[in-house]
Design a protein around this nucleic acid. Sequence first.
RNA 1: CGGGAUGUAGCGCAGUCCGGUAAGCGCGCUCGGUUCGGGACCGAGAAGUCGGAGGUUCAAAUCCUCUCAUCCCGACCA
Length: 507
Amino acid sequence: MSKKKRTAIEPTREENYAEWYQQVIKAADLAENSDVRGCMVIKPWGYAIWENIQKALDQMFRDTGHRNAYFPIFIPKSFFEKEAEHVEGFAKECAVVTHSRLEDDGHGGLKAAGELTEPLIVRPTSETIIGSSFARWVNSYRDLPLLINQWANIVRWEMRTRLFLRTTEFLWQEGHTVHESKEDAMLETLKMLDVYADFAAQYLAIPVIKGEKTEGEKFPGAVNTYCIEAMMQDKKALQSGTSHFLGQNFAKASEIKFQGRDGEMQYAWTTSWGVSTRLIGALIMAHSDDNGLVLPPKIAPSHIALIPIYRNEDEKAEVLAYCKKVESLFHKERFEDMRLYTELDDRDLTGSERNWYWIKKGIPLRMEIGPRDIASESVMVARRDKEPRDKQSVPISELKAYALQNLKEMQEVYYQRALEFRQANTIKIDDKDEFYRYYTPKSQDQPEIHGGFALAHWCGDTACEEQIKTDLKVTIRCIPFDTKEEEGKCISCAKPSRQRVIFAKSY
RNA sequence: CGGGAUGUAGCGCAGUCCGGUAAGCGCGCUCGGUUCGGGACCGAGAAGUCGGAGGUUCAAAUCCUCUCAUCCCGACCA
């Protein structure tokens, strides 16, 4: 009989990945479902992660010349109707405001009254409403480039929701820029994709693949859509950010025109790009384990849990005093470019309970501090990327340097682990049968855990993409930038192909 | 929006088929004590309109109808 190791999260990833994901969110107290269907309440520990994402990204946007602004949550229906593809892509998931006030319905309740002359759409994205402002702001080539970002909430009436991955309302950032030339706009589109990829790697410790979306997967109204794709621990792909080259489509829809260097009036070239609270879902699924959340130090809301261990009131007083001294070592300390935070957990629970509480929350370092440590002028330090019982005694004199060094190492470890996992689950496939075998579940009971990324040839025909999607529920995640041109045969129809694309099941 | 499953205390569940002292268990919570460096123990407590609304019946957690929510699988999507 093999004894099953007790894990803090049940079921484990292997047993039931989807359920494990829900349980990690609950155990780490990140978020919960609200009383409004499909909407979530983001709790302090989860929201702090979002705030850290905001801080880091906002700095990067600023460094690339962008400025924040804010546009209305409501978009007149007529604005929306201006770009045909855009309408088609978003119409089905729009929430619509049709009335402006409530009246007594005569039965003890309220009824909507004051019908609006024109319905307002709750923004699912802001190209059209921002475009109308941009049309006023842009008159001359001297007004360009116009580089704007907004942090906002948006609403997309999705059928099926999952915390952080897909909710009816979510938080995001949307960059909107206007350029004089096609080349400038394309450069901007790709520059911001790079910003996203760098952010994912450096802060979230998630390696991503940069590439272009196929015709069938691109943003409604865009000329080209680029994306970063990440692999989760169930080997599925998660689109973690997108950047769109909009050509002159939205400039024409919103009349964004300017007088050029040649004196002629012309339509501008625009871009848009965004990442959302979905990144928190990516973070959870990329790093967490069967004991709960795992957070890269550079994005963690707090970095060190101090856990006093004592037997009686006398010891408690002594230990707490010592803990405060230890905590003061880190007062207003910085880790990389973020503030370093500590949590002194003096709740009246057993040491192990407090220990496990912080393991589940994913705090990078735990410091157990008891009478023995006071005697030896040291602290027991445990890292979240190691086994729960794996602890190291560190002298107080070296503690600060030790903590900073280990946080740095952990950030690196998480990135490497994720990268190795992706590499181990990415293969080149040239044979159609092998391709189909690769994506056929080994176990019908848990069809999530199988397959991975496949680099295979594709002729460029949407029909082939559709066929594979129908047969295997596998889609082309992107046409990656970093592959060489090579002759081959389409994995579906065997017609000649010039390059490999990334296939995967996706969220 | 289609198919499936589930709603009983804060969480996890039993009871539902065969209606009738079954409102019960484990964890958590409160109080008292012993504990505390591998998820503590003993004792005493508090807590649930059985998801909601109708109906059948002398009697409904249990049967019927409708409805809401959650999860899974599809279609759609960041």
